[in-house]
Simulated scan of single mutants.
Amino acid sequence: MMKCKFAIATAVLSLGFLPVVSQAQSYPDRPITVIVPFTPGASTDNLTRAAAKGLQDILGQPVIVRNQPGAGTSIATNAALRADADGYTILMQSSGFMTSLYGMKNPGYKMSDFNAIGALGYTPFIMLAQNEDYAKSLETFVDYLKSNTGKLNVATLGEGGVHVLLSNAFQKEAGFKWTNIPYKGGAPAMNALLAGDVVSYSATVSFATSQKGQDRITPLAVTSKTRSEFFPDIPTFAEKGYPGVYALADYGLIVRSDTPDDIQKKLRDAMAKVMNSKEMKEVLRNLGMEPFDGDATAYEKQINEFAEFYAREAKALNMPVN
């Protein structure tokens, strides 16, 4: 009887010394889904699909892209939040991830619900104006705006997005007033600028590169901290004394924050390899985007900085801040 008890005790005790298998060792053992909050064929969709192909090659499992556009990216975000926190559902995030936090009363998620696994790239905004004498430089344009304060219109995309926040920040720092006119997309906003319905529109640099041959439009300043490689002769707003006019349309991949740490690390390591590849750098250049200089931790810090800016400006506009 004692021998039997000893044998059982030994067997139970030995179980405690079995090697612990990390979840990441077997991950992934089935396909991974990347949810994209934009329609198929958009530049952001093409960028994500290129990254998904790279992740698939490294991780050895299919990485499937699923498009779920709508409601300022919140439909896709909430779909990712409802999925299991196991690393098999990844969300492609953009500035819309943050703008929905203040543009919607109940977006259904918080910043703390997700962690970054890596940046895909970014594009700053660039202020465009008609090629007139008053817009030969940002200085002359500001003089014109001040002398016509309250009389002019500027194009924005929607009524609560980053364009409105940039417009608000520029008005405050430069000391003038104009009226935000919402448009449903970059093309109609550009047409309004060409028609003279508005005096300015801040397009993404990736969009503006397609307009470089348009001699009726002139670029004035970019909203990044450093000059854009696609418009190296155009100054930043900060260079001209307006440091608060700062925003990027950034894109990256995130997962639920309660995803196991070892799986998050595996995804971050894989993303770093993908984004350092020549293929992805070429994809970014072809799309008019720039690579993010930093790891997932630095990218997460940048996201939080943007969120603080958006929340501050949204509060000034009396928009809901969650």
Results as ranks from 00 to 15, higher is better:
9 A>Y: 10
102 Y>S: 10
239 E>A: 12
179 T>P: 03
74 S>M: 07
177 K>D: 13
109 Y>V: 03
133 D>S: 14
39 T>N: 13
111 M>E: 14
7 A>Y: 05
108 G>I: 02
301 K>G: 05
98 M>P: 00
18 L>W: 13
205 V>D: 02
253 L>H: 12
30 R>L: 01
256 R>W: 05
114 F>C: 03
68 Q>I: 15
77 T>V: 12
249 A>R: 00
36 V>Q: 09
29 D>N: 13
94 S>P: 01
159 E>T: 15
239 E>Y: 07
38 F>Y: 15
86 D>Y: 04
236 T>D: 13
261 D>W: 01
228 S>W: 09
322 N>P: 13
152 L>I: 11
6 F>I: 14
125 F>T: 04
71 A>T: 08
254 I>Y: 12
289 M>Y: 03
21 V>W: 08
68 Q>E: 15
54 G>D: 05
40 P>T: 08
249 A>N: 14
284 L>R: 02
205 V>Q: 00
322 N>L: 09
9 A>Q: 10
264 Q>F: 01
203 A>Q: 11
294 G>W: 06
20 V>A: 15
13 L>Q: 05
203 A>K: 02
164 V>G: 05
24 A>W: 11
119 A>Y: 00
251 Y>M: 11
52 A>L: 09
282 E>L: 12
122 Y>K: 07
43 S>D: 14
222 V>D: 08
164 V>W: 06
231 F>E: 10
130 Q>K: 13
197 D>G: 10
320 P>G: 03
80 A>M: 00
317 L>M: 15
296 A>N: 04
253 L>R: 05
144 Y>E: 04
29 D>P: 00
280 M>I: 07
159 E>I: 12
107 P>I: 03
300 E>P: 00
281 K>Q: 14
181 I>K: 14
64 I>P: 07
148 N>E: 10
98 M>V: 10
176 F>Q: 12
171 Q>N: 09
74 S>N: 05
245 V>C: 11
238 A>F: 08
72 G>F: 06
39 T>A: 12
151 K>G: 09
96 G>I: 01
157 L>I: 15
143 D>I: 01
54 G>A: 06
188 P>L: 08
33 T>Y: 10
95 S>M: 06
60 G>F: 04
146 K>E: 09
286 N>A: 13
94 S>H: 07
301 K>R: 14
146 K>C: 02
83 A>Y: 02
199 V>A: 02
212 K>V: 10
313 E>D: 11
79 A>G: 03
165 L>E: 15
86 D>E: 06
58 I>T: 07
35 I>V: 13
34 V>H: 05
312 R>Y: 13
234 I>W: 11
299 Y>L: 02
208 A>W: 03
102 Y>V: 11
105 K>E: 13
177 K>A: 14
299 Y>E: 02
84 D>R: 09
76 A>V: 02
47 L>V: 00
84 D>H: 07
68 Q>R: 08
60 G>K: 04
257 S>Q: 11
206 S>C: 05
95 S>K: 02
265 K>E: 15
317 L>A: 10
314 A>T: 07
306 F>S: 09
85 A>H: 05
148 N>Y: 09
55 L>M: 14
239 E>H: 08
148 N>V: 04
217 I>W: 12
230 F>Y: 15
26 S>D: 14
50 A>N: 04
133 D>F: 04
127 M>G: 08
